[in-house]
């Protein structure tokens, strides 16, 4: 079982370096970055992470072919592998529809586009030509596993069919169970060996001895994730259309104080694993009953990420012992 940490480069790179050094020393398997145009570049962040670590897997995530041409995604992965051979993984996905629209980009045929991207990556990273003109003029070093970030049934199936791994966003226990089952069925149907594919769940966490601080810290993240999933999801948690509109507005304008007043705790519990270390441990055990290969802890981690990392490693160690 792999336990990894997602470090979104919203923090300055010097903070990322400090956290990366802590994460490696604690014993986690990998660090995933995330790509949002308004944050720092995930690829450059990976260079910074590599500078202060020596063992941990560095995972560039999640690049989408609407923003970055697949040939450039291959170039990024291969360049990083030259610096940190055998330690690079790459994550691709269809991108966030709303973010793409804000940039004037239409998310056309996401399934086809992601499939095409993975095929291009496989070719270019193995030193092959895509056609007469397109190739990398340098080689990649070590195996670079390709992950697909997937949510919908078809994307999950695609991941099981063509990628080396899948990253499933935790959107509640039941939804996640269904997603894992879909991947499992598809892997069984295609006779893919278990060690040829990694099913990993990315879950937002916020852990602290102070429960209320942990919950408060994760509320904005929960709001963003919930709005991305869809309004019907929010209605399930008792939010009427007026409050949903307010939530949208305050999330868009970054008024987190107001967001905290609107987001119900039930929603936080449904979309994340948050609370005291004991609560996080028992929620994590529910997740680990699923046939998965890894968990990526994402989100704020806690009101104090340094302390949260130590808590998470304690929790993971308890599970492993």
């Amino acid at each position: 079982m792999k336990f990894s940490i997602e470090l979104p480069p919203k923090d300055p790179l010097w903070r990322l370096k400090i956290y990366s050094s802590i994460i490696e020393k604690l014993g986690f398997s990998a660090i995933w970055t995330s790509e949002h145009y308004y944050n720092r570049s995930s690829a450059v962040s990976c260079v910074a992470i590599g500078q202060v670590t020596s063992r941990i897997q560095i995972c560039v995530g999640i690049l989408n072919p609407y923003m970055v041409h697949p040939a450039l995604i291959a170039q990024i992965a291969a360049t990083l592998s030259e610096m940190y051979p055998g330690r690079i993984s790459i994550g691709v996905g269809a991108g966030d529809k709303l973010t793409l629209e804000n940039l004037g980009i239409q998310q056309r045929e996401p399934l086809k586009k992601v499939e095409e991207t993975v095929n291009i990556l496989k070719k270019l990273l193995s030193g092959k030509r895509l056609n007469e003109f397109i190739r990398l003029d340098f080689r990649s070093w070590g195996k670079i596993p390709i992950y697909i970030a997937a949510q919908g049934q078809n994307m999950l199936k695609l991941a099981a069919r063509i990628a080396d791994g899948v990253l499933i966003n935790f959107t509640g226990l039941e939804n996640t169970q269904k997603a894992v089952a879909t991947v499992r069925d598809c892997l069984n149907a295609s006779n893919k060996a278990a060690d040829q594919f990694s099913t990993e769940v990315t879950v937002m966490v916020s852990v602290s001895e102070d429960r209320s601080k942990a919950i408060k810290t994760i509320m904005p993240y929960t709001a963003i994730l919930a709005l991305g999933i869809g309004e019907s999801h929010l209605e399930q948690f008792g939010l009427d259309s007026r409050r949903i509109e307010k939530l949208k507005y305050f999330t868009k304008t970054g008024n987190w104080q107001e967001v905290q007043n609107i987001v119900p705790e039930d929603l936080v519990n449904a979309l994340s694993i948050s609370g005291t270390p004991i609560e996080v441990y028992s929620r994590l055990m529910e997740l680990l009953r699923m046939p998965i290969d890894g968990v990526v802890f994402g989100g704020p981690l806690g009101p104090n990420p340094r302390k949260a990392l130590a808590h998470l490693w304690d929790i993971v160690s308890r599970h492993m012992s």
Binding site: P12, W14, R15, I18, V52, N304, P305, R306
Partner: peptide, 22 residues
């Protein structure tokens, strides 16, 4: 590590701090 005013911190100082920590 937790301040929301990281924009007030000179990145060169931050880098130096990371070096000391590591």
């Amino acid at each position: 590590l937790t301040t929301l005013n990281a924009v007030n911190i000179d990145p060169r100082d931050g880098e130096q701090l990371a070096d000391y920590f590591i």
